[in-house]
Amino acid sequence: MIAEITTLPLQIDTPFAGELFLLGRLLFGATLAFMGLNHFMDVDAMAGYAEFKGLPAPRFSVIASGLLLVLGGLGIATGVYPVVAAGGLAVFLLVSAVTMHDFWSVDDPEERQNEMTGFLKNLYGAGASLALLAVGGTAWPYALEIGFF
């Protein structure tokens, strides 16, 4: 006999849960927004790396990904369009993990380790984004609550 799996609605009503959720959103969102700003600070170098990795339209890719990181990070931090922000970040982080941090194809051990670190960073960021996407349609404490859902 298979046990029935049920889910409970998200409840952020335990002591300090709302504040901790806000702190987690601020840390996660602000970090991603800062990473996006870095895309604009050295577009030429990042575009060169994107070209080296075989990305089409490397300069546009750097600018577009920087914009996605800034807007997505701010969306998570503030609770503005959280479903769009979390979904966009999850897709971007998964795609960039595979396309930009292909450690399995690198021969140099030090470079392989750097790429693996970038790959894993993107994976855990995608995991956090997916978790936030799962709760994106619910009311977030201390959020501006601007969104589609």
Rank of each mutant, 00 (worst) to 15 (best):
A33M: 12
L32N: 01
W140M: 01
E115P: 00
V106N: 03
G73Y: 00
A64G: 08
A64H: 07
L69H: 00
T99M: 14
L69K: 05
G118W: 02
A85I: 07
E19L: 14
L8R: 14
T138Q: 08
G54H: 05
A143T: 03
K121Y: 07
M100I: 10
P109K: 09
A50L: 09
A57V: 09
L71H: 03
L89Y: 03
G72W: 03
G29P: 04
F103Q: 04
V135C: 04
I12L: 15
R112W: 02
L22T: 14
G72F: 01
D102R: 15
I76F: 04
F119T: 05
Y124L: 10
V106S: 02
F60M: 10
E115F: 12
L23M: 15
L69Q: 07
P141E: 05
A17N: 13
I2C: 00
D44W: 01
L74S: 06
L32R: 01
V70W: 00
F21K: 08
G66A: 06
S61Y: 06
G147I: 03
L20F: 15
A50D: 02
L132A: 00
D42I: 09
T78F: 15
L55D: 01
G127R: 06
M100D: 06
A17H: 10
L10V: 14
I63L: 13
E145L: 01
G54T: 06
F92T: 11
G137Q: 02
T117F: 11
L130A: 07
G136W: 04
L144H: 08
I76Q: 03
S61C: 02
D42H: 13
R112I: 10
G72M: 05
P9Y: 08
P56H: 08
A143K: 03
G48L: 06
F148I: 10
A139I: 05
L23I: 15
G72I: 03
V80T: 13
V43L: 11
S96M: 13
T31C: 14
G36S: 12
F92Y: 12
G137D: 04
T99R: 14
G24K: 06
I76T: 05
M46S: 11
L27Y: 08
Q11M: 11
L55C: 00
P141Y: 02
A85S: 15
K53E: 09
A3G: 10
A47I: 07
V98M: 13
A86E: 02
P58C: 11
A86G: 06
E51N: 12
G29Q: 03
A17Q: 14
G75D: 04
L32P: 00
G72T: 05
E51G: 12
V43I: 15
Y49R: 11
E110S: 13
A86L: 06
R25D: 09
P141S: 08
A33Q: 03
E145V: 00
L37F: 15
A64T: 10
L94S: 14
S105A: 14
M35K: 13
L89M: 13
L94C: 15
L27H: 09
I12V: 15
I2E: 13
